[in-house]
Write a protein that binds this DNA or RNA. Structure first.
Lengths: 111, 111
DNA sequence: TGCATATATTCCGTTATCGGAATATAATGC
DNA sequence: GCATTATATTCCGATAACGGAATATATGCA
């Protein structure tokens, strides 16, 4: 077996920096392909191909208006990433706690 | 150019499900390679190779004790993922807000 | 019908992964 | 030094991504 396909799950889809960029700008509002092309200044096939991966993995949805296709982000599909990463949050918070304690000690000594 | 290498950044390293598993169990405590082998029941070279990728990208650190190598997670390297994903949190929270409003209306009608 | 616009698809070359099996390195203890 | 334990590395074969260029599809409009 080779590397997990990009369409296997959100983690693999989002590993590609350009696909993260696309999701970021779609976070603001629904956009057509040509609007994305203009905003990011990428070749149109590049945009379409990355949207294709994001759509296959369910991270974006598409709506047709005439010959345009409006893409929007599908946030719930990003939740597995959020759920996986948040348990590690305690490490940063713990560090802050320790820093707080250090600062307390420093303050006590200064008094 | 081909696909972004797994060692390019935390996003790519973490795209592989097995590497996420390794990081999860290292979240609990520092572990030797053989402890990971036993916990996950994978071939030893598989464990070593995945640890190698995680180490290259800075997601784990290593400490030698005799012939053992103790690996620990490097949480701050996971923060870019946390920072990228959390802005999308508002979508789930917004949904809950809307649900709350619906429930309020339902309650009002029941009174 | 014919032309223009919007988007998707295909073909190609280069590159790197992943698992498995085998082997190499390194440290310990006798 | 030699055997043993702990871990890393190498050598496959199969798979697929990515960018670029070219082309195909599909819709709208005169």
């Amino acid at each position: 077996m080779a590397r997990t396909p990009t369409t296997y799950d959100p983690f693999n889809a989002v590993a590609e920096p350009k696909r993260r960029q696309v999701l970021e700008i779609l976070g603001a509002r629904e956009l057509s392909v040509s609007e994305i092309v203009e905003l990011l200044d990428w070749p149109q096939p590049t945009v379409s191909k990355h949207l294709g991966v994001l759509k296959q993995v369910g991270l974006v949805s598409e709506r047709r208006i005439g010959r345009q296709r409006m893409y929007r982000v599908n946030p719930e599909r990003l939740k597995p990433i959020y759920d996986w990463i948040t348990p590690f949050e305690r490490f940063w918070n713990e560090s802050f706690d320790r820093l707080d304690k250090v600062l307390e000690v420093v303050q006590e000594k200064e008094i």
